[in-house]
């Protein structure tokens, strides 16, 4: 039986957050945060959705991030795809210029945030976002959205959804650091973004997106089967 020395145990305790992918190393002075979501690794466990709600106190019926279920095909040739969604922290965000009081803005590090002390809760940004990533928070009277868990990021930790993703499908990092996991993926793998035609230049990238939603002749897509919907493509 292997007996751990006390010092080894302490070292393990220190290293645990990093081993669990919870710590983030800042190598560049001006980071530009981005996320890659690997759809081939998402198992649809909803732990990102739940952990985000717990971390950020998101009210009942609202989400900063959620997982969509897309059903492809017809029985017996059916496949389910899990599509995690969140604010895309676009480089050309349509939510920012429409805010009448400048309460939402894009930071230098690429994160689109809301100034909760200035927001009047008019909902214009909610209407302008083509990704449906914002919601009017009934508890605060302001608009709310994902901010990559800014409070955790400033403490050197990754967002809650990344830390709690059991399949390792959410990868977070600095685009300005060539050795960060996101930079390595973007230079080595084929990625796609949602709705590139909007011109918003989203900064959440998906691996396996085209493969996941590619439909064959006569196939149909149904989103969140309980809600139902009409196929757009």
């Amino acid at each position: 039986m292997v007996k751990l020395e006390e010092s080894s145990f302490l070292k393990l305790q220190e290293e645990l957050p990093r081993l669990l992918n919870r710590r983030i190393e800042r190598k560049s002075d001006k980071p530009r945060w981005a996320m890659v979501i690997d759809l081939t690794r998402c198992v649809g466990c909803y732990s990102c959705q739940v952990s985000c709600k717990m971390e950020n106190g998101v009210p009942y019926e609202y989400f900063r991030t959620h997982v969509e279920i897309i059903e492809r095909g017809t029985y017996p040739n059916v496949r389910r795809i899990f599509l995690p969604r969140l604010c895309n922290h676009c480089d050309n965000p349509s939510c920012v210029p429409v805010c009448p009081v400048g309460a939402t803005y894009k930071r230098e590090d690429g994160i689109v945030v809301v100034d909760y002390d200035r927001c009047i809760g008019c909902g214009y940004c909610v209407q302008a976002c083509p990704y449906g990533a914002r919601y009017p928070n009934p508890e605060t009277g302001t608009v709310d959205k994902c901010d990559y868990c800014l409070h955790k990021l400033e403490d050197g930790e990754v967002p809650a959804c990344v830390a709690n993703c059991m399949g390792g499908a959410r990868i977070f990092g600095d685009l300005n650091d060539p050795e960060s996991p996101v930079s390595l993926i973007l230079t080595s793998k084929s990625v796609a973004t949602l709705k590139p035609e909007t011109g918003n230049q989203p900064r959440v990238y998906y691996i396996g997106l085209e493969e996941a939603v590619r439909i064959g002749l006569g196939e149909t897509l149904v989103v969140n089967p309980k809600i139902g919907g009409v196929m757009k493509i």
């Binding site: 969509e68 897309i70 709705k195 989103v223 139902g228 009409v230 757009k232 493509i233």
Partner: peptide
């Protein structure tokens, strides 16, 4: 309502 980037719902 856009239920997904690929699907509309009402």
């Amino acid at each position: 309502l856009e239920a997904s980037p690929y699907i509309y719902t009402t």
